[in-house]
Design a protein around this nucleic acid. Structure first.
Lengths: 193, 193, 193, 193
DNA sequence: AGGTAAACGAGACGGTACGTCGTGTCTTGGT
DNA sequence: ACCAAGACACGACGTACCGTCTCGTTTACCT
C-alpha cells in the first residue's frame, strides 16, 4: 500500500490550471515553471515530482484533459466525417491550445519518450474513432473497402491543424469544420472506392 | 554606396551549411548559435549581422533555399494537384526540415514580425501557385467556380504536413504525395462544384 | 506525566552514530538530514523531534558527548596548564570534529539562540575549569593575582584550535599540547604577575 | 596576446564591493550570488566567469585585498610581537570579516584547491613576517634559537582569532592586541629559550 | 479491555540558492 | 565596414537541502 504522506490532491489541478492561465496570458515561452509554481501556490519540487519536464506538464495540462468523446454514429459517412471534424476542431481550438501547440510539439519531438506517449494519448485515440467510422461506412456500403486509417487521419486532421495553427486567416464563414466537411467527405469516399 | 570592407562571400553559405549539419546531427535545441558559428569558423557577430534571430537563420538555411518552382500546367486538375503535392512534399521532407520545422514554427509564432515574413515567403508563394492551378481548372471547365484558395491550401498542405511532422508512421507504399493525389483531387473538385 | 508512546531508546544513539559516520565519510555539507535519517534507519521527523536543526544535531553528536572531565589538581600551575591543554586538544581532535567544526561554528553563528547554548555548554564549562585552575595558582602563590579568565581562555584554546582547524601542518613532534605547555604556561604567568 | 572583448575593468571591483556590502547587511547566508550580481548591476555569468564558487568570491572580496604590510622592525621582540598582533587583529576585525569568516572557513575546508590557495595567500604571508621577526630576535640575542614558526604562528594568531570569532565577550579594556602582547611575548621567549 | 496520546517510517510540502546554459548585444584589436 | 574572439545582461532551467507537515501504524499508559 501507499507509504508516506500522500500527494496533496488539489495540487495537480491547481498546477494544471495555472499552466492554462499562464499560457493564455503570456504564451508558452513566458509560461515558466517558476511562474507556474508561484501562481499555483506550490513549490517547484512539487511540480517536478509530478512531471518530468515543462513539455510533460503542458501536455498534461492542455492536451490530455481534452475529452474526445467518441463521435456518435450519425447514420451516414457524410455525417460522421462532419462530426469527427467537429471533434478535431474543438480539440485544437481554444486559447491555451493556440498558445501551446507549436512549442509543445517542438518539445515533444525533442523527447522520444514523450513523443511515444503523445502519439498514443492524442493521435491513437482519434485514430480509433476513425477506424470505427470507416468500418461503419463499409458495412453501410458507402465504401467498398476500408482505406488506410492513417491516410484518412492525415486528410481529416491535417487541414484543420494547418488552418488553425499555421494560417493567420480567419476561419471561413460558416465555420472551418463545416466548410471542410464536403470536400473531405469526397476525399474519403475516393480513398475507399 | 557601399563603404568599408565588403562582406566576405563564403560566410553566408558556410553558416547555412553549418546550421543544416547541426540540425541533422543534434536537432534544433542543440543547434546553438555559438555552435553554428564555431562550426562555420565564424564569429557570432557575423551571424547576427546577416540574420536577426535564430529563427530567421534557420528559416533562411532550411526553408527558404528550397526552390518551389511553379508546377507546370500538366493539362488537367488531377495532374496539377499531384504536381503541387509533390512540390509540397519535397519542401517538407529531408532531415534538416524534419529536425527544424516544429521548433521553427514555434519560434515563428512567438515573433509577429517574423510570422508575417514567413507567411509571405513560404505560404504566399505556394498560395499563388494554387490560384493559378484553380483558375486553369475553371477555364478548362473542370471546376464550375474557383474555390477559396486558403481552403484548398489547407486541404493540400495539411495532410502532407501532418503525416511528415506529426505521425511517426512510414510513408505509405507508393509515396505520400501519390497516395494523397486521388482523394485530395476529389476534395478540390467537390469544393469547386 | 508522560503520556503516549515513549521515545524509542536506541534512536538517539543511532542518529548520533550516523552523523559521526557521515561526517567522517563525506564532510558536513554532504551530511544531509535525509542521509542521516536513512543511515540510522529512522524517519526525519524522529530527528527533528529530538534536535531543532542540523547544527543542534551535529553539536549534540560531535561536541557535547565529549567528556571534559575537570582536570585534576596536579599540584602546580605548570602541570595544570598542560592538563587543560590536553583536555582541549582531545575535545577538538578526531575525524568527526575535524569535519564538523568549521561548518558547525558557521551555523552556530547564524543562530543567536544556538550561539548562546553553545557558548554555555562548550565554552562555559571550559571557562569554569580555568577559573579553578587560576585560583589554585593564586593560593599557591604562583600568581600574584587572578588574570582575566577570558584572556587566559583565548590563550590556551586559541593556539590549539588554530593549529588543528586552520593549519594543514602535522602536529609538532612530541604532540601539540606538550609543545604548547611551556610557552603558554609562561604566558599565563606573565598575565598574573 | 589577448583576443576578444576584454573583461570590463569595473566589474571586479563592483562585485567585490557588493559582496562586502551584502555581508555587512545580511550575513554570509543571505549574501546570494544572485543578490551580489543584482547589486553590482552585473549578470551572474560575469561573476562565475571570474570566480568559481561563492567561497572563492568571498575570499577574494574579504580576505585577499587586506593589505598585511610587513610590520616594521621595532627594535625589540616585545615591540615586534605587539606590532604583529596589531596586524593580525586588524586583518580579522571589521564587519565584513566578522560576518564572513566562519562560513568562509567552512566552505574553504570543503574545497581542497581553495584550501591550498587560502593557506598560501593568508597564512603564508603572515608566516613570512613571523620568520623575519624571529630571526631578528635571534640576532639581537633575545632568543637563543629560532623556535618553530608554525608554533609561534598558532600562539599569536590563535588567541586573537578565538576571541574575535568564537567568544562573544567585548574586547578587554585597552584593546585585545595590547592585552595579549605581554603574555604572548613571554610565550615566544619561553619557546626560544 | 478499550481509549487516548504520542512516537514511529515514509515521504510530500513551500521555500530558496545553486551553478549551467542559451540568446542577442557589445567591445576589443586586427584586416 | 567588416572580421574572430569573447565578455556582457538577462533570465529559465533542473537539482538539492532545509525544516515542516501529513499519512497510516505501533506502542505504551490510563481509565
Amino acid at each position: 500500500m501507499a507509504r508516506g504522506r500522500p500527494r496533496e490532491e488539489g495540487i495537480d489541478d491547481a498546477v494544471r490550471e495555472a499552466v492554462r492561465a499562464l499560457l493564455t496570458e503570456s504564451g508558452y515561452q513566458r509560461c515558466t515553471i517558476d511562474a507556474v509554481a508561484a501562481r499555483a501556490g506550490v513549490g517547484k519540487a512539487a511540480v517536478y515530482r509530478r512531471w518530468r519536464s515543462k513539455a510533460e506538464l503542458v501536455f498534461a495540462a492542455v492536451i490530455h484533459p481534452v475529452e474526445l468523446e467518441p463521435p456518435e454514429d450519425t447514420g451516414s459517412l457524410r455525417g460522421d466525417v462532419a462530426a469527427v471534424l467537429g471533434v478535431i476542431q474543438s480539440s485544437l481550438d481554444g486559447p491555451e491550445v493556440k498558445s501551446a501547440l507549436p512549442s509543445l510539439l517542438a518539445d515533444v519531438r525533442a523527447d522520444p519518450a514523450l513523443e511515444a506517449r503523445f502519439g498514443e494519448a492524442f493521435l491513437g485515440r482519434e485514430r480509433g474513432y476513425l477506424v470505427l467510422m470507416l468500418e461503419r461506412a463499409v458495412v453501410r456500403g458507402e465504401l467498398s473497402r476500408r482505406p488506410d486509417p492513417a491516410l484518412v487521419h492525415s486528410i481529416l486532421l491535417g487541414p484543420v491543424l494547418t488552418w488553425l495553427h499555421l494560417f493567420t486567416e480567419k476561419p471561413p464563414s460558416g465555420g472551418l469544420a463545416a466548410s471542410l466537411a464536403s470536400p473531405l467527405h469526397a476525399a474519403v469516399v475516393a480513398l475507399g472506392a
